[in-house]
Nucleic acid binder design. Structure first.
Lengths: 152, 152
DNA sequence: GTGGCGAATGAAAACCGTTTTCATTCTGAA
DNA sequence: TTCAGAATGAAAACGGTTTTCATTCGCCAC
């Protein structure tokens, strides 16, 4: 994901429902029950299939923006030109191990950068405010699928 | 930067000059004397200013692709929708501390992911093949410029 | 040298995710 | 009920990148 220090989290369940836009609520609902990362268009597509009057793509983008702002959703960039989103524990973030074969992803349970933040700060005199980190490779299942077949 | 395991480095100075396209050579020249990251359009612009018959944008893109393939250049993605490039020691890679204020960047002298690769592999049974990692914040100079002014 | 063929090149069009614009509709406070 | 600001949507604009396709280049065989 990508992290940017400044957040303004001060949300409770009730506050959320209060401040969230109609569109944002629908978007959040989709993300709530999706465990894989979703692009704006994925979300838009999902809503088109289940809502009588689904929000437009523009609204989905705007909703995502405010949800990210609120710290309820994180945006992830794999460098393929398509941003993906997923719910997070408010104000938290995490990174992924992304399988290049099946495209599924696993969450890293701790942030490698945060751990090293102080040492970076000390060594480079650089004030860390955000970072992006994603790891690509093969998940356990796909390793099995590849190896026995004989390496190409 | 973004790393993808598979490379086919087997280059010597002479081999390079042999296999490199005319356009690729010009692109490499620009990157050779630029210490900051350059976008395709930056490179194209630079060449337009100094070459009699500069390569077209398309050729710049194609050249960059093959240079990355050869391991002579790395592509870096900051998640802002514009890819940037820079020369690297053949086959190596590095990540950046990018100042959000002045936009300059410093190289990390070691890769945080490679250090942890084995433990990730062991813990998650995930075969690491590549990764992206960039850190954003304030460089030393820009910290000074901000702090004395009083925090907003 | 000359013919010929695949690689390289360039201009323009296509792509595609995202952002803007702008007019319309909704919502909540007065 | 009225009104102003927020939310929404459709369509256009954007911007970096990739494709397409016709042309030119470079090099080997003859």
């Amino acid at each position: 994901m990508s992290v940017q220090g400044s957040h303004g989290h001060s949300h409770t369940k009730s506050q959320q429902s209060l401040r969230l836009t109609k569109g944002a609520k629908k978007v959040l609902e989709v993300l709530e029950r999706t465990d894989e990362l979703s692009s704006a268009q994925d979300i838009h597509g999902a809503l088109r299939n289940e809502e009588e009057s689904p929000p437009g793509l523009t609204t989905v983008y705007r909703s995502l923006e405010s949800l990210v702002q609120l710290g309820l959703v994180q945006a992830v960039d794999f460098g393929d030109g398509e941003r993906r989103y997923e719910m997070v524990k408010p104000g938290e973030h995490h990174h992924h191990l992304v399988c290049e074969k099946c495209r599924n992803s696993v969450h890293l349970d701790q942030c490698l950068v945060q751990q090293l933040e102080e040492s970076i700060q000390a060594k480079y005199k650089f004030e860390v405010r955000g970072h992006i980190l994603e790891i690509f490779g093969l998940c356990e299942e796909c390793q099995k699928a590849v190896a026995p077949a004989g390496k190409k």
